[in-house]
Computed example of a mutant assay.
Amino acid sequence: MHDFVVNVQTRVLSVVRSVLQQNAISADVQPESRLVDIGLNSIGMVELMLKVEAEFDLILPQLEITPANFQSVKAMERMILNQLGSGSE
């Protein structure tokens, strides 16, 4: 299970770095980094949400699309693990 969690975090970091690069934002992103503080705006957040859905082949429920769930890599990781966990039952 630990490898699965690490894999999810690695994939989320990769998606975040990709979106930052597309938005010409140069930053060292850590799991706890606040994405707004790094410079990601609302359009970047929408891009991020769409890329996360594509990366993990899921559609996020409307209730999960909140600023809190997209404030950091760690928050997104928790949200994705919850979604993947509920989808496999």
Rank of each mutant, 00 (worst) to 15 (best):
V8L: 04
I65F: 07
V16S: 08
E53V: 13
S72A: 11
N7A: 14
E64F: 01
D57Y: 10
R17Q: 14
L40I: 01
A24G: 08
S42P: 11
S14M: 09
I25Y: 10
D57A: 06
G85L: 01
G44P: 12
L63C: 13
R78I: 10
T10E: 03
Q30I: 03
M1A: 10
I59W: 15
L63F: 15
S88E: 12
V15S: 05
I43L: 09
G87E: 05
L50Y: 05
D37N: 06
L84T: 09
N69F: 01
E32R: 03
D28N: 15
V73M: 01
A75I: 07
T66P: 03
E32D: 11
F4G: 02
N23V: 07
T10Q: 09
A27E: 00
V36S: 13
D28H: 12
L58P: 07
L40M: 05
G39E: 02
Q83S: 14
E77I: 00
N7E: 09
S14T: 13
Q30M: 12
E32I: 06
A27H: 01
E53Y: 00
P31N: 04
D3C: 06
V52L: 04
E32G: 05
Q62V: 08
A68K: 14
Q71R: 13
V29T: 08
F70Y: 05
E55S: 12
D28S: 12
L48Q: 04
Q71A: 04
E47A: 03
I59V: 10
E47I: 03
K74E: 04
S88Q: 09
A24W: 11
F56P: 00
A75K: 09
R11E: 09
F70N: 02
V36D: 08
L35E: 01
P67A: 10
K74L: 08
F4H: 11
I43M: 02
A24I: 00
I43E: 04
Q22W: 05
E55Y: 00
I65N: 04
Q22F: 09
E47H: 15
E89W: 08
V29F: 10
S88G: 13
I25Q: 11
M79P: 15
P67M: 01
V8F: 02
E77T: 15
V8K: 07
Q71N: 12
I25D: 03
S72L: 02
I65H: 02
G44H: 00
V8G: 02
E89K: 08
R78Y: 06
V19N: 02
S42T: 08
T66E: 12
R34S: 14
R34N: 15
N23P: 00
D28Q: 05
N7V: 10
I59D: 15
A27I: 06
P61E: 15
V52D: 11
I80K: 07
S26N: 15
M49P: 00
E89S: 11
A54L: 10
V15E: 01
L40Y: 04
G85W: 06
H2Y: 14
N69Q: 03
P61G: 02
T10Y: 07
H2C: 15
N69R: 08
R34T: 08
F4P: 01
L20R: 01
V36T: 10
L50M: 04
E47S: 14
I38C: 01
S42A: 09
P61T: 13
V6W: 13
V29P: 01
P67Y: 12
G44V: 02
E77G: 13
H2D: 12
V46L: 14
L84R: 05
M76Y: 06
E53I: 09
K51V: 05
R11N: 13
N82K: 14
Q22G: 08
F56I: 00
